[in-house]
Design a binder for these strands. Structure first.
Lengths: 216, 216
DNA sequence: TAGATTGTTAATCGATTAACAATC
DNA sequence: TAGATTGTTAATCGATTAACAATC
């Protein structure tokens, strides 16, 4: 599989392809053409073929794509079969939801446990995984070579904990804190879920609709 | 304020501007130039000026932008001062986190309450707001002309509840279910938070790093 | 074989960046 | 006034779309 200079737009479409293909597979579908996939996803067939061709040749002329094998290819590209490890920093409502209700998310990773500052939580479990003292976070990351930290703490301690994680050699932070984290000049990866930003986009669209209707 | 044919990229940058400006304001800063803002946000000054000029003229030659008034302008553009109403559908861990831990989110809206299917939850509260029977969801939306539904239920009932919401005339759905919702040919707005997609992008970056390092 | 559909090259479109006159 | 910085027009760059030869 090649992987040369892929644009961000393409990368962000890959999980959508994967999701769609798995849906189709679950429905018992076997093959699909870029034309039909485009119709179902609201993309042009050209774009779909261009996107896939960034990574290799996964189709067959006159036939299209085999859904199961294309799904595996995209999973391969996204690294879903690599055994990355993850920890949860801050098992509050949000963190608990991710571990317990979105099990399919952490199921793809080796989940090592959670870290909490509340004394009464330390030693208990979340989703069956142990909750450790957050004071031991840095040492744990160093010892276990943790790949991903899921950061679901309040905004105040976010940067401080980021410093601990980065110093301990974490490779990636999945950030839910609505704070722009500073990882210095390290190559630590940060992927943000900014709830407020997303909701504001929705509000923008509502305001836009209202203004358009008022103008008529 | 004009609002003509704004590209999606621009709209998605607006909440980031707002967040940055509010940070600067909290730090006591008064003015900023597109150059300095660009440095701090990793954008070009040109892009920043282009983005703002989509909506009007908010700066002053030789001076730059007044942080407080620019923030208000962007808030205006995003519709944050409009009194939109919201409900929560599914007050589980995730929904509770949104209402209780991310209070700043729903604070911008008139929050009317939550809807649960679990009998023992009905009549209780979440974040001080009432929890109603989900069987009454459609009627409630019709009666109260609800603008936004925050959908934090498991994937299985997601589409069915969407149908109820859309039929009742909901204007927008903030969707956390990792399901692609079908709103038919209505102009109901949908904004998705796809946790899995976001995490997969992070995994892609890790895999990419590994492959690059292995190639060396 | 004929029809369908890919992978890829070329054309188009849109978004970002650069340049600069206007002006505070 | 002189320096700084905007808003905007033009240039560049990149992403999407169209076209089509290759081929299953």
């Amino acid at each position: 599989m090649k992987r040369t200079n892929i644009s961000n737009n393409v990368i962000r479409r890959l999980p959508r392809y994967l999701r769609k293909l798995d849906d189709l597979h679950a429905k018992g579908e076997e093959r699909i053409s870029s034309g039909e996939l485009g119709r179902q996803m609201g993309l042009t067939p050209s774009q779909i073929r261009q996107d896939f061709s960034c990574f290799g040749e996964f189709g067959q002329q006159g036939y299209g794509y085999n859904i199961e094998s294309l799904s595996k290819e995209i999973g391969q590209i996204l690294g879903t079969y690599r055994d990355y490890s993850a920890i949860l920093v801050g098992p509050g409502h949000l963190g608990t939801a991710l571990v317990e209700n979105f099990k399919f998310i952490i199921d793809g990773y080796t989940f090592l446990g959670a870290f909490d500052i509340r004394p009464e939580m330390i030693g208990t479990t979340v989703g069956g995984y142990p909750i450790y003292d957050i004071a031991t976070l840095g040492d744990f990351v160093k010892e276990h070579k943790v790949d991903i930290a899921i950061l679901t703490v309040p905004r105040e301690p976010a940067q401080e904990l980021t410093d601990v994680l980065v110093d301990a050699g974490i490779r990636a932070i999945w950030n839910f804190t609505n704070v722009e984290l500073d990882v210095g000049d390290t190559d630590t990866l940060v992927e943000n879920i900014h709830f407020a930003d997303s909701l504001l986009v929705l509000t923008y669209r509502l305001a836009e609709q209202d203004d358009l209707r008022a103008a008529k």
